[in-house]
Design a protein around this nucleic acid. Sequence first.
RNA 1: GCCCGAGUGGUGGAAUUGGUAUACACGCAAGACUUAAAAUUUUGUGACCGCAAGGUCAUGUGGGUUCGAUUCCCACCUCGGGCACCA
Length: 877
Amino acid sequence: MKNNVQNEYDHLDIEKKWQKEWARKKVYKTEAPSTRSGQAKKKKCYVLDMFPYPSGLGLHVGHPKGYIGSDVFARMRRMQGFNVLHPMGYDAFGLPAEQYALEHNIAPQKAVIENVKTFERQLNKIGLSYDWDRKVNTTDPDFYRWTQWIFLKLFGSWYGSTGSPQATQKARPISELIKIFEKDGNQKVNSVSGKVQVFSASDWKAMDEKTKQDVLMKYRLAYEGYSEVNWCPVLGTVLANDEVVDSSKGLVSERGGFLVVKKEMRQWFLRITAYAPRLLAGLDTLDWSSHIKEIQRNWIGESHGLLFTAKVKDSDMVIETFNAHFQACYADTFFVIAPDHPMLPKLVEGVANETEILSKAREIVDKRAKFSEGEYREIDGIFTGRYVVDPLGNGDLPIWVASFALKDYGTGIVKCSAHDERDFAFAKKFNIKLKTVLLPTNEHLGKKVLNQEICFSDMVNGILTEPKELMGKIAGEATKDIIKYVTSRGFAKVHTTYKMRDAVFARQRYWGEPIPLRHDKDGIIHELREKDLPLKLPNVKSYVPTGTGESPLAGVSSWVKAGLETNTMPGWAGSSWYFLRYMDPKNKKAFADINAIKYWKNVDMYVGGQEHATGHLLYSRFWYKFMKDYGLVVTEEPFQTLRNQGMILGSDNRKMSKRWGNVINPDDIVKIYGADTLRVYEMFMGPFEASLPWSTDNIIGSRRFLEKVWKIKQKVIKKGKVDSKFEVLLYKTIKKISEDIEGFSFNTSISSMMILVNEMEKLESVRQSDFELFLKILSPFAPHITEELWKQLGHKSFLVLEKWPKVDSKKTQELEVKIVVQINGKVRASFDTHFGAREDEAVSGARALREVEKWLINKEIIKTVFVPNRLINFVTK
RNA sequence: GCCCGAGUGGUGGAAUUGGUAUACACGCAAGACUUAAAAUUUUGUGACCGCAAGGUCAUGUGGGUUCGAUUCCCACCUCGGGCACCA
């Protein structure tokens, strides 16, 4: 085998050799922008893969699919003369590493180092063109000091306005807010949380520090609060959502099957809701799949409606309620409040059966806690004994506690009517008085039978009977009139609300970035000074949860003594901004130099799985917009173009997993077939975004293709006659590959190169210049074999740094075309003619054919359709 | 329930603005090479009728627009995804 090595395609040898060579000569090194002007000569292109977690399990063939796609793109851009930033690094904080440390009894720090090694060894075999000099790792204190630094900025900022809430808003330092409070006069400050604080400067000055802190906490972009977590008493730990499963007993832990309950716990939150309108609007400017944009739109859940303000009878309390389907607002006969609404205790204060009401509310909340979100659907509630003075003049309306009311949506209080299925069902169960103001039209009987009663819930096609001024109008058409009617009389104002909630930014775990805050003995929270960053994670003896639900840091006495925050940051902290660090990864003075940021701006091509649609891709857009407000970055969006690779499934069509025994290790494929074959095959399998099963049968086709390329080299000649037909195909292929890579249509690029290679096989000889053009366009897909052939043709340069071929439109012009002849739209024949033949030439060409005349005997042609260079269609009577 | 997306040979899939449906690849069948097998290579390969020439039917189903529909419109079926007591 070794003796005819000259003619053998020995992928192991070739791939090892060139990987070494590329690394030695640092061919993929990114050029830094010149520091003086912030502008380099070359145009930039930032191509990025989503930040991976280096798992200890190693890779399967599905993992590199996205990396190969982005690599093909990056390689073409590099050859096209762009200064390409194509880095890789690790998001190594988080649960899996901590779990691994617990199970194997080693420090997570050590586990990460090992796992990164495995990951890189596997990745490097595939021939990806990363600039490894820019590698980052979230667990490196040099990295996470900047994560902490950004957190402090968030903590020290608020997002609001003193004027109209509709005015363009930006994050501003909290010191500005304090100045507003200190100014004289009653300050009305609109915060995003919807709470409006009204107090005078002297009120503010009279407050003690703790009260001031509590006020400011309502405005901060990073704030302390409480939220429900999955608490497992037996394990003595808080569990993430994916560690909890539904069972017949209710919620249980995935490991052990122990009961899980919801428990209120102290948390840190990021006020992402402040950015909801901008996160929504920004989507229109992005080149992302409409699918992902849709998921984000749904998640943000913008809803336009009316906000009614109403007085509680016999009290100075005022309640607000949001109504998106307000067309039938004159039918409202009762209000409901969420059982866990913070206002409820005050509302029922002094009511005869106060304790009964509160215990009923408690009962509903407890019951709901046993279900996962949305599972609890029982209709339950109790009358609060309180009434609202209806702003629309329908007298006193009762307020009920209702199981279906959610405290986190709208205002947590709902104005209810007979024209809503859910309200209707509730009213029927508790015998609450109803009223109808909509009549069904004949065509639209949007009626539902509920509890043997009829509920007309079609708010679009109903005919209004109230208010009198709008009587007879179709509700859906009268929306604007109703808004005008209600707002002009001061009953309500136009309002927009969002489904999205603030993001919990804390984990009760060890393996995450420490939160750089200090609590003093008076309960006042202090920021760490910038020069004290990074706040390093302490070494601990045990990673075992404390049993109280608190992080293991709560068991470190020096940490607790110093008053340091014991929660750590969640997994998405580092991944929300890491792409900025790649721009200037070694900078000690800043997360990145401003000139580097001005040059690289944002990510041009971002590649990763679509499972991050509502997590990472939303959080990082939020951080980025925040940073934009402070002039830390220069564009509004971090990821201009996004492509999502599909999964590679096992050959049994199931997810690749140890559990099913269907895992294919890329190391094995690289060894047997080669990295180039793996790359070509993964790109050829099907559309990039599609999830497809791995097929060991099919990979042979990609290997055969590369072997054909290898063999064709033997018939390459320095100079030869130009085969004009082949030339056209070659240039058309070059054009197609360029366009296909641009559009991530890799499967069709490969197939068109296969067609070209099949043509080359038929030729006696191939001119070297033509073969070289082909090697260039194949290079992004199969960099090793093409580099080797390039060298064998006598070149000293690196093919991966060569210029991408330009396409001259003259060269792709067909000389001869086939014209299809149709009779009444059916294909009956075809003939060859010169490119650009006129209609009359085509008609005579077609009429000369026997197969055509046969169909036209005794027929009258009433119409002729001619599509140049394509077809001619005779339409007969 | 609401909102997206997709249904094409035995299989993965291709088809520009409405213009030859099934490119490319796998698999399969037959032939060549071989003692034989593998590898390689040549040819064929949507279904049905036919010795053939040729014809008919086919892109989830049913309709529509058009000279012409995988592509546009309407209804339905199936699968996948997202959201889900969201006022």
